[in-house]
Design a protein around this nucleic acid. Structure first.
Length: 796
DNA sequence: GGCCCTCGAGTTCG
DNA sequence: CTCGAGGGCC
């Protein structure tokens, strides 16, 4: 049948099929069956056909890979099933005599054998591509969304860019695929494509910027806002795992999954294989290692996965890393360079961290100029000196690290490096505590570096999230006296910022950037003021984290926030009571206590609150905590020496407040049933300096607790208090359970059926009889948009 | 007292 | 990403 006798629709369909087949043969089977010229001719014909008959153009047509318009941002995508990160194993390059260089790999296999009680389990083995992990979602066989890995939980929507990659099928081939399929794999740039692209870039004489290395090139290409740019990049794709999988039976083995993926049109590396036990894995590692340089793409190791999926489930996870898989990495690439200097950086906690300033060297795909030396022990271990030639590599292919010194090249007259005795920034003593690895500057707030770093932490994305407040501004603000504590941020005015900028320009002798085309450019300052203002409304968890208390990171801050629920309670609580929170022990509790013990810190908190910082999620302490704070428990745990649980109980029965116990005289204590000796001891303690301080704090804390509880009760009246809500139909942005939970926290009762008592209903897509009934009864009807907006307005 | 896990803190480059 | 160290469990 010739083109002439076909209808345009049939011709278009036939062309598409042939183009898709050619793609499949080229990218998946690696066995092209038609010459490039013919392929191009078919594409041109199809494009012409679709231009002539626009109704024939479908989104999954091969001509429609580059579509859509440049976007301004990538929307976050939550992965239904988190994307994993693998543990690493290395082969020890210089094992001690008698030591197994492949201990890590063998340990990995041995643990699996122990847990599963099998010998030499079967592994699916594959090369580990050096690219960018992504997830592709197919619904009813059509590619609907693609996202980057992100932090594993949430990535970025890069669908438009992924569509331009010909190795990624826009629709699934074959049959038997599930209704919902998520495929995980690696986008990478083949070496040849990388070279060719850079050749073109060189020829363009600066018009096209050359790419640094294939891996960054892949990552950078997917982050292009304009898919037409991505389409110009020679990207490819290999699939290696599943995410969501709904509506079809799941194969029993990982190797079968890969075979299925290949049938459905995904490129799967021809190097994937299976191997038995540790020895099989190591043989595969050796084989791939020998091929590494000749491969048409970069790899950084191989991956071993337990092949049996049921066994994978049995093995489970530690955190987000599976017990059933490991990445066996090739040794990192190494380079030698010169140590030009060894400097000390001062961190937020005063930690003095030595860092090597290196002669720029290209290693592992980037130019490295700095390498951390961690601490004085590390410097001593390596014996790095200024002027040394050292071997550097990128640990885990990211953070540069000094591997060792090339002693043969050491110049004469070098001296071992020593931690300076005084802080290079503020001149305070640098002290190293007994048994600690870090040395610290003791300058605290007097040290500009610590000040800058703590403000930087405070403003961080995960803390108060002040957008646009970078290290440079913080330094400058500090230098000119606008910023002593974080509270000063909330006192800054537009004029302050502009004045600071003027002085910075004066100091640097730079042309004032603030003056452009005769007008004073103030946009950056306006933005910053706005960002600061926006940060005022925050959560307890963020606020606590932002304070930068030692040992209090994100998760401890969260625990404190959920357990105590109220800043005023936390800031007055004596440390033994802080230990009520799981995962908070002596050390952390003491650190928190010490922080709040400083009047300066309490003043900063007062200042922050006075300048409009508002914690919007204060809530009553958890029920568990309220029990724990009952009088007898407080007495037992407040840190009063010799007071046993039993005695605490007796006291609690006889007195009705902590204050009463603290002010009781000996007679009263004896009357309460305490043996004379215990009573004397307690009385002595409570009237000693230590006891008085403790009592004062406990009383204050309990008062705060009481107020917090009362306050929370008073404000518990949510905006939907007393209202009955009915949900019907399907909501797209959240599940019914989530909607229910959110409505309930705002005070609503969520019921299942519509009656005249119903306050309003929320009708999603395809709402049925409940909607009819609500209309009949004249009940208010919300659509999803209205619900979302309402939830947003009320902190949903 | 030792082991295993998790968390905190510091870090690099584009 | 890595190291060091705190916390919990045996």
């Amino acid at each position: 049948m010739s083109a002439k006798t076909e209808t345009p629709a049939a011709r278009a369909a036939r062309l598409r099929e042939r183009i898709e087949d050619a793609n499949y043969r080229y990218h998946v089977l690696d066995d092209p069956d038609i010459p490039d010229a013919e392929y191009d001719a078919m594409m041109r014909e199809l494009e012409a056909l679709e231009a002539e008959h626009p109704e024939l153009a479908t989104p999954e047509s091969p001509t429609q890979r580059v579509g859509g318009t440049p976007s301004s941002a990538f929307l976050p995508v939550r992965h239904e099933i988190p994307m994993l990160s693998l543990a690493n194993a290395f082969t020890d390059p210089a094992p001690r005599p008698g030591e197994d260089p492949n201990k890590q790999t063998r340990d990995f296999v041995r643990k699996i054998e122990q847990r599963l009680d099998v010998r030499d389990p079967m592994f699916s083995v594959e090369p580990k591509f050096d690219g960018l992990a992504i997830s592709l979602r197919y619904e009813d066989g059509m590619f609907v969304r693609g996202a980057t890995r992100g932090d594993g939980e949430t990535g970025e929507d890069v669908t438009a860019n992924l569509r331009t990659i010909k190795a990624i099928p826009l629709k699934l081939r074959g049959k038997g695929w599930p209704r919902v399929l998520e495929v995980r794999g690696e986008v990478y740039m083949p070496r040849a494509g990388f070279e060719a692209y850079n050749e073109k870039a060189r020829a363009s004489e600066g018009k096209i910027k050359p790419l640094v290395n294939p891996r960054n090139a892949a990552a950078g290409s997917l982050r292009q806002l304009d898919p037409r740019v991505t389409a110009q990049r020679p990207l490819s794709f290999y699939a290696y795992a599943l995410g969501a999988f709904e509506g079809a039976p799941m194969p029993a083995r990982h190797s079968e999954v890969l075979a299925k993926l290949r049938e459905w049109g995904f490129p799967v590396s021809p190097l994937v294989s299976t191997a038995r036990g540790a020895e099989g894995c190591l043989a595969y590692f050796a084989k791939i290692g020998a091929m590494r340089d000749k491969l048409p793409f970069d790899i950084d190791g191989v991956v071993y996965k337990v092949d049996d999926l049921a066994a994978q489930r049995e093995l489970g996870f530690v955190g987000r890393t599976p017990r059933w898989a490991i990445a066996h990495k090739f040794p990192a690439q190494e380079q030698t360079t010169l140590v030009e200097d060894i400097i000390v950086n001062i961190g937020r906690t005063g930690a003095a961290t030595p860092a090597a300033k290196l002669k720029p060297v290209f290693v592992g795909g980037v130019t490295v100029t700095n390498a951390t030396l961690h601490n004085a022990d590390q410097v001593a271990r390596l014996d790095v000196r200024v002027g040394d030639t050292v071997i550097v590599r990128r640990a885990g292919d990211v953070i540069p690290e000094v591997v060792r010194v090339v002693l043969e090249l050491r110049p004469k007259g070098t001296k071992p490096w020593e931690m300076p005795k005084h802080c290079p920034i503020c001149g305070s003593d640098i002290v190293r505590e007994e048994g600690e690895a870090v040395a610290r500057c003791t300058g605290e707030l007097a040290c500009a570096a610590q000040r800058t770093q703590s403000v930087f932490h405070f403003a961080g994305r995960r803390a108060m999230d002040i957008d646009g407040l970078g290290e440079r501004y913080i330094e400058d603000l500090g230098e000119f006296g606008y910023l002593r504590t974080v509270a000063d941020l909330y006192k800054l005015t537009l004029e302050d910022l502009l004045e600071m900028k003027r002085r910075v320009d004066e100091r640097d002798g730079t042309v004032p950037e603030t003056v452009k085309a005769g007008k004073i450019a103030t946009k950056w300052a306006e933005n910053l003021i706005e960002a600061i203002d926006k940060s005022r409304r925050t959560t307890l968890e963020r606020f606590l984290y932002a304070l930068g208390i030692q040992h209090v990171g994100e998760s401890t801050a969260k625990a404190l926030a959920t357990w105590f629920g109220d800043l005023h309670l936390i800031r007055h609580l004596p440390w033994p009571l802080l230990k009520l929170v799981p995962d908070i022990g002596d050390e952390v509790a003491r650190a928190i206590d010490a922080f709040f013990e400083q009047p300066g810190n309490q003043k900063v908190i007062d200042d922050l609150l006075a300048h409009g910082v508002e914690i919007r999620d204060t809530h009553p302490p958890s029920a568990k905590l309220r029990t724990a704070l009952a009088l007898e428990n407080v007495l037992a745990r407040a840190g009063i020496p010799k007071l046993t649980t039993r005695r605490a109980k007796q006291l609690a029965a006889a007195f009705d407040s902590f204050e009463a116990v603290a002010t009781a005289d000996m007679a009263a204590l004896v009357e309460a049933g305490l043996p004379r000796e215990t009573a004397e001891c307690l009385h002595g303690f409570l009237h000693g300096q230590e006891g008085k301080t403790l009592a004062k704090r406990v009383v204050r804390a309990l008062k705060a607790l009481h107020e917090a509880t009362a306050h929370a009760r008073a404000t518990a009246a949510g905006p939907l208090d007393g209202q009955t809500v009915v949900l019907t139909g399907t909501l797209s942005s959240l599940t019914r359970d989530e909607a229910k939970g959110k409505l309930e926290t705002l005070g609503a009762k969520v019921s299942g059926s519509v009656s005249k008592k119903t306050s309003f209903i929320v009708a999603g897509e395809a709402a049925g009889s409940k909607l009819d009934k609500a209309q009949e009864l004249g009940i208010e009807i919300w659509d999803e948009a209205k619900l979302t907006k309402f939830l947003q307005q009320h902190g949903g």
